[in-house]
Amino acid sequence: MRQTIQAYYIPPSAVKIPLTKTSRSTYCEWKGAATYFSAADEASGQTVANRIWAYERPTQRFEAIRGYLSFYAGAPWECYVDGEAVEAQPGDFYGGWVTSEIEGIVKGRNGNWDPVV
């Protein structure tokens, strides 16, 4: 069975670190405009910016993810699905998580210029 790359969206109440909106915004042709956030690690004093996003006003088809947060896999954190470490989808155009179940071409390194699968 062919598997697709997943982006996971979680409710903001599940995130236990303070987030601050950044000025970055991108546009998804299906979901609409994405808002990005930074997160400060008080223990280390480091800030991670633009690795977390949400759709605050998604298109009607994606209303179910309104305000939910998604994270780019990879640095600065480790991400797992069912105990398997995931790899980030190439590039920063998409935010998918790649697991061993994925078959075929993984789009992302060249954004919309990647081959259609």
Rank of each mutant, 00 (worst) to 15 (best):
C28Y: 03
A75S: 14
T35R: 06
A73L: 05
S25H: 12
A85D: 02
D82V: 00
Y80C: 01
V116Y: 08
S13P: 00
R109Q: 13
G83C: 01
Q89H: 05
R51T: 13
I52V: 11
A85Q: 15
S23V: 14
W97L: 01
Y55T: 03
A7H: 06
T35F: 02
E56Y: 01
L69D: 01
A75N: 13
F37T: 03
Q46N: 12
D82F: 06
M1A: 14
G96L: 07
T35A: 09
V117Y: 06
C28L: 04
S23Q: 12
Y8W: 13
I102N: 03
A39I: 02
Y27A: 05
W53I: 04
D114H: 05
W53K: 07
T4F: 15
Q60T: 08
L19I: 11
L19M: 10
A64W: 09
K31I: 07
I10F: 09
R61H: 11
L19N: 05
C28M: 03
S70V: 08
Q3H: 14
A64E: 11
C28V: 01
F93Q: 01
Y55F: 15
A64M: 13
W77M: 12
I17K: 15
W30V: 07
S70D: 01
A39T: 00
T20M: 10
W30K: 14
I65M: 04
R24F: 08
Q60W: 10
V106W: 03
W97A: 02
E56K: 01
R2C: 09
I65R: 02
G32I: 02
A49R: 09
A75V: 11
W53P: 00
S100I: 00
D92I: 10
W77N: 10
S100A: 14
